[in-house]
Structure formats: C-alpha cells, structure tokens
Amino acid sequence: MDIARLDLRKMWTPALLLIALALFATLPLYASRYLVILLTSIAMYVVLTGSWAIFSGPTGYISLAPAAFFGLGIYTSAVLGRTSPLPAVILVAGLASFLVALFVGALTLRLKGIYFAMFTFGLVELIKYFLLWYEVEFTGTRGRFVVVVDNTTIYYVMFIILATLLLTAYLIRRSRFGMALQSIGECEEAAAHIGVNVNLLKTVTFAISAIFIGMAGAIMATRWTYVDPYIAFNPLFSFMPVLMAIFGGIGRFGGPILGAVVFAYLEETLITRFPYYYMLLFGIVLIIAVVYLPNGLVGLAQILQKRISERRHAHTGR
C-alpha cells in the first residue's frame, strides 16, 4: 500500500505541472484582457523575487541590485527595440545583465553583510544619476520611447522567462552547488576550507540570477512605452523582491514565489485605488514578517500543519 501511494504521488507532480502549463499556455485564448495583464504583472514579480532568491536565499547576502539589472534590461529594450527582433532584444538583455553582474560580483567579493547591501544599493543610484546626466547632456531628452508589443506576446514572453527561471532554480537547488551555496550562507570560512571555491560560486550564481531580471526588464519596457532613468532604475524594484521573499519565506523553494504572488496581486488590485494604504500595509507586513515570521508564510504554514497533525495524533491516541 505504501508503494501504491508513493507511485501515485510521483505521477501527480508531473501531471499537475502539465495541467498548469497547458492552462497558462492557452489562457490568452479565453481569458479577459485584464486577467492576462494581471498575470503578467504577477509573473514579473515572481521572476524578480525568484531570481533574487537564487543567490540571496541560500547565501544570506542581501542584494539590492535587482533594480540595476531590471533597468539594464529596460534600456536594452529602449535602445535596440526599434532595430532588432524581440527575441534578440530579450537575449541581449539577459546576456548584458549576466556580464555586468559577473563584473559587479567579482568586485564585491570582499564585502560582507551589510556592506554588500549598501554597495548594491549605491550602484543602482550611481547608474541612475549617471544615465540621467548622460541623457540630458548628449541626447537632449530625459526619456525614451519603447516599441509597443501586444499584451499577449508580453504575457507569453514573461511566462517563458518564468518557466526557465523556475527550472534553473530547481536544478541549482537540487545540485551539489545548491548545497554549497547554502554552506556559504551558514559559514563561509568553513565552506572555503572544505574545498568550495566560494568566490567563483558566489559570482557565477549572482550573474545567473541577473539574467532573468534583465530579461524581465526588457519585456516589461514594451508595456510601459515610455521610460526614463527614474522609472527604469527605481530602487523599489530592488526593495520589492527582498520584501516579497521575506514575506513568503527565504529559505524554502516556494516561499519567495508565494510571497511574490500574494503581494503582486495585492499591488495590482490596491495600488491604483489606495496607493498610500497599499504601501502602508506593505510596510506593516514587512515589519511583522521580519520580527515575528523568520521563515515567512511558508514557515508559518509548516508550524500550523505540525500543530494540526499533533492535535490529530492526540485525538487518535485517546
């Protein structure tokens, strides 16, 4: 009977994945325009948060650099969008983010803890104000117009990026490198002393996580049609993934994804009508999550599950 149950479970996971994939792939055929746009926004936040968690989740280095790669993707789209086909633009954005992240990662290897967070934060602002100065000085205007792409295409591109990200994150997590990343977060010195090339592993993982953020920026730019350095390098794109991941639970695979889905949905529904209340709620939830829920929503769910099963045991025990 145990074997039968096991087999069933093994069949369930791929079956569910296939159903989900079919559902998302065909959705624009029958769903409303609003739902397609909403799901695209949610997928964007899942991409940002999930990518952030690939590196920062296991290693514990708080990166505030997502906005830099997101902005890089947006500007790739703004500069190349008119002359190159969309897939090329997306791939170039991913590659550019990868290379910049490789360089930034190599530069910042010595920075520990809060210094790394401050550096990545400063980097975004440096790029933003430099670009602003450059645009005003040399192109004469602050912003740029981006080629418009229809909503269904944006939706599909975002979901392909998301699927690739989830697959990558899953493979890294399952591999020996996932375990090594975890060991860096737990004790970097000991990890180095048992043969883990910590600098290389940190840099490459940081760069891989940047690919998806850059690609997401490139496709989102086509929805906004007009971008300037303030829009593209908005530090909120760095804060949001951190906060969403913490809210969902950093240490677990599903945590950051869950956190992003919940908050992206709340944002889409609340921000136009009650922007200040939404951000206020955001702040309160963040404080509560940091102080009371070290493992986020997923951690909370696990505690509740444990309590319920204990209670059930207590009942059957009687």
């Binding site: 708080i62 913490i246 951000m279 206020l280 702040g283 940091v290």
Partner: peptide
C-alpha cells in the same frame, strides 16, 4: 541582527512615509 534590523527599517520607512 544587522541584516534583519535594516530590513525592519525598510518597513518603517514605508509605514512613516505613507502615514
């Protein structure tokens, strides 16, 4: 503590600003 207090202060930033 340095990491988590910084994150909590982000939360405080949003709360005070929006109030």
């Amino acid at each position: 503590f340095e990491s988590s207090s910084m994150l909590a202060s982000f939360g405080l930033m949003f709360v005070i600003q929006n109030i």
